[in-house]
Amino acid sequence: MSLALIQQDFLKAVNSNHNGLCGHLCQGGALKPMDRVNIYRNNTQQARVRALSDIYPMTVGIIGTRLFNMFCHRYSDSHPATHWDLNQYGREFPQFIAEQAIRFDGLAELLYLEELGHLEWLLHQSYYAVNSTEFPLEQFSGLDSASQQACRLLLSPSVGLINTDWPLYDLWQHWQQGTLPDALDPLSTTEYLCVSKDRHRPTVTPINREQYLLLSKLSHTSLVALATQPELASALKALPEYVAKGWITDFYLLGADRV
């Protein structure tokens, strides 16, 4: 049997209970071949459970370690990792866990789990995002007025946006103090949040709807086009503030070389 086939069967066995590898293993000893393969399967799953627990600590706190780990194992079975970096594993976990939770008494009413998971993923992404350089103000100022108006602005890779009908900001604030609220009731109006990196640590800032819309549109809408949208008028005035905060870190002109 070739090296390539052994590796293919081994990885299938680790990721999906496939037993093709067993026929190529030595027999004997206290363990059957499948038991031996399962040691690796378990090691692999444990690595993924640890990674997901690190990424989604608030979710662990809310549903408990036992259920969380069970969902992790199911997720691992249906979503094999494809990259060596486990910090990139688990993007679809919030949706997965929400789908699983509706089948469990006591979890079915936690309708905010998916949105909470999305917030946790953004916080995690923000931490590991490339640290951006400062906005090239000098270069931007050097453009003529028409070019400036044609520019599109780019958010820092550490910035993420989320809107939610649940008080996730309050929940996140509790978590910063090491606690969790007893219960979460839906909000009467949608909450808009901006995740960003404050020095080294990800943080959450409440923003209003106009700011959310503006930041969502920045990278694919020119400044002149944004200026024609009346609902963004007041938010546009805050652009220098976003630059100062490091939320906006670059600009580009369509057709131009530099970004």
Partner: peptide, 21 residues
């Protein structure tokens, strides 16, 4: 070995001790 083009194990998987390997 730890991965193929499609799958990742996140564990250290042993090789067969062959001349090919």
């Amino acid at each position: 070995f730890s991965h193929s083009t499609q799958h990742q194990s996140h564990d250290l998987l042993p090789l067969p001790y062959t001349a090919e390997a």
